[in-house]
Nucleic acid binder design. Structure first.
Lengths: 193, 193
DNA sequence: TTTTGTTCCTAGCGCTGCTAGATTTTCCTG
DNA sequence: CAGGAAAATCTAGCAGCGCTAGGAACAAAA
């Protein structure tokens, strides 16, 4: 038992090490710089070790993405609970969401842009992901009126995602982001009462 | 003169051939299947010929994207001019936009998702792209009120882009898209009068 | 027909994700 | 402590990628 559990623990530690190294490399140099060779070198193991932990590079990205979900959920929660009223909460989570994407573009990439096939709208969705969605939903709830809360939250999320990705991709000038967000919020808070 | 112009014409035809082949390959098998080798084989030339036309693979994608801009602009225009009233126009361009992304995912990828560094918010923006944006803007105008038309159009665009990309990426279930779009439209048409 | 200039291809570089097979290390047994 | 089974790990390599140098083949001019 003892020896087996020690091995499992060491394996888990090494797996965590790989994920952290991948994330750091991605955040400093972008995902295109994260190659299995460089990653192996960073964790001081040979390439095949990576494949004993993960099915492939995509699975490593997915693992990094799951870390990101947890952090995003935390930041959304902080923004929401710090808000004074319902309007402020919706604005807060919106700002926090886009801010997260801007501060951690590589992380955001792995979470929502890359084709990492994590389960999304299914029962096996990562808890951290659904936690983040719940934060959005709670912020949206007071403005939902008779509309379906889940659908409206998805719609708000999509709008934030669009603003974030178009800005990250250089399609929208960054300086005017705050004003665009204000326009969006005006449309989503108007009919709430 | 004659001989030189013939060569230029042939060069232009071959360039068009490359773009078309790249687009077809991308639309049928996705961009990851578009390799310079396969592309060269399709156009029945050797690889280096591609590089005498384009700086690299990214430049080929950018050329395909420009084609896409023109088509999207056309579809948006058709949707807008076919509308009965202002509300219908906004809904029409919205539906047309997302429909385009769903029908031509690879094309949409090249246009708005990949890192192809085409000029966007600058004077040298491709005419077809600004034409498409203008169509959106015309549809948004009646609903802008005192808000800045350009900024509001960007915001509406971002929302559509978010809906389209999250759906394409499997993050949002496709079946409910129409209802999400309806929610978005309700928020963007409400205060127009 | 030879020369000149352009066009185009062959071959190859350094990189990628990934894996088969050999080797080393770890552990249990006598 | 020594020998052997089992597990962990590495070396070496495959097929493919984007891209390019240098030479062969062609067309136009003399």
């Amino acid at each position: 038992m003892t020896i087996q559990s020690r091995r499992e623990r060491e394996r888990a530690e090494r797996e965590k090490l790989i994920i952290t190294a991948a994330r750091e490399l991605a955040e400093t140099e972008g995902w295109e710089a994260v190659t299995t060779r460089r990653l192996a070198e960073r964790v001081e193991y040979s390439q095949p070790v990576l494949y004993s932990h993960f099915k492939g590079k995509d699975a490593i990205m997915a693992a990094v993405a799951v870390e990101g979900f947890a952090e995003l959920a935390g930041e959304l929660r902080a923004a929401r609970t710090a808000a004074r009223d319902a309007d402020d909460a919706l604005a807060g989570v919106g700002r926090a969401y886009v801010s997260f994407a801007e501060r951690r573009p590589a992380l955001y990439d792995a979470m929502f842009r890359r084709g990492v096939d994590l389960p999304f709208a299914t029962p096996q969705v990562p808890p951290a992901l659904s936690a983040g969605f719940q934060e959005l939903a709670e912020a949206v709830r007071p403005h939902a009126g008779d509309d379906d809360l889940g659908l409206l939250t998805e719609t708000y999320w999509a709008a934030l995602h669009g603003l974030a990705t178009l800005t990250l991709g250089g399609r929208l000038p960054r300086e005017l982001h705050e004003r665009r967000l204000a326009l969006l919020l005006a449309r989503f808070t108007a009919g709430s009462g």
